[in-house]
Design a protein around this nucleic acid. Structure first.
Lengths: 211, 211
DNA sequence: AGGTATATGTAAACACTGTTGACCTGTCAA
DNA sequence: TTGACAGGTCAACAGTGTTTACATATACCT
């Protein structure tokens, strides 16, 4: 049942280690996906993995640790921000719409749904700034870049939030392409520089968009 | 300490009734305001009100009941949607900005901050649709009204969410009036009809706006 | 080989949470 | 006086995430 010495590390005695860790992680992923984060307790995960509860905290610090670990491999915005800046807003809009329609990883969907949990809150907070606002800020550059990035983040976060609030049935009822174009327009409006005391544009590229 | 027969109702035996109810509510309000919803337990409220824990559930059904009761008097969008439709987006934008800057009731601020809690989730869900999306839908009227309303809700909800995620320091750093105008522009873009197969505008009014 | 340090796993408790059911107790009407 | 009953109390229930003290198996070293 237990495969001793699996680590191959060398010095330490091992009864499961990486295997156990993986088993816990897999169970957490499956349960979170099917039941949502808040509805799954540490003990459920442990028992599903055939493992003692305390091991979760031993290996992941806390239940929250499982989440961060799972989100590390199953990124929030996989390769959406990276890429040609000229088509950034389009990619983000497309991403939003697809999320709105419940596409994406099953785990992503499940976590979107149970995003109310304080633990998710905490982890998302870290991820949203580091995976969205920060890169966006860098892309845009300049003094008020972070302001523009925050506005964009607001629009995108709002869309996922309205999905939880009312299922976004009204939004899904709209023509998908038109909705995407509208969201793109919103995002571009977020980017437009605040005139007044800074003449230059916030988007140094500006190739051939404007549909 | 206890004033019997305070209700003035007449018939029923009372040792506190309305008085006790009010005391609990007041304690809840104070504690929620200072500590946030999730950090305050039923027992804390009870002990602060000098009352037994069970009374909370007797009078309010559950902890969530306290919330709904408090939100009934301290509305989410007090008189923002009602009013001249021609200036609706401006009012909403102004409201958003003021919330962004942490204005509004202390309770509102506190609840905005602890909006992660599943209980808040549930109550907010009901309130957002009934106090924002539904009225907006009625205002706009027409087939895709609910879609437009949802988009607007998304923008506004996103703004409060980004406030929790990164404190919205970047947004608060922007010129307040310019930000308000930008948000107003975003909201109006949400309202613009999806052309293609419906020629008429989504906003039958359209007086003399445009800054 | 034997001994021992140490990594791994376990059982039980801790300190909470929201909520509920059985029980008093004071006040009124008959 | 005797009920009826609203108002209040107490202790328990069934959970939660987390931690502490303990047992066990492994791998290296002598």
């Amino acid at each position: 049942m237990d495969r001793p010495g699996e680590t191959g590390g060398g010095t330490g005695p091992t009864r499961g280690r990486e295997a156990t860790r993986a088993r816990i992680l897999a169970s957490a992923k499956e349960l979170f996906t099917n039941e949502g984060y808040g509805s799954v307790s540490s003990r459920m995960i442990a028992s599903h993995a055939g493992v003692n509860v305390a091991l979760i905290n031993r290996y992941f610090g806390a239940k929250r640790g499982l989440l961060t670990e799972l989100l590390r491999e199953d990124g929030v915005f996989p390769g959406v921000i990276e890429g040609d800046p000229a088509t950034l807003t389009r990619r983000l809009a497309e991403h939003s719409v697809s999320r709105l329609h419940g596409e994406g990883t099953a785990l992503q969907r499940a976590l979107d749904d149970s995003a109310g949990d304080p633990d998710l809150q905490l982890v998302y907070q870290e991820r949203i700034t580091s995976a969205m606002i920060d890169p966006l800020t860098v892309y845009l550059g300049g003094d008020r870049a972070r302001g523009h990035a925050s506005l964009m983040a607001a629009v995108m976060l709002g869309l996922t939030r309205v999905r939880r609030v009312e299922g976004a049935t009204a939004l899904r009822a709209l023509d998908r392409d038109l909705l995407r174009d509208r969201i793109q327009a919103l995002l571009e409006l977020c980017l437009e520089d605040f005139a007044e005391d800074s003449g230059e544009k916030a988007r140094p590229w500006e190739d051939e968009r404007e549909d």
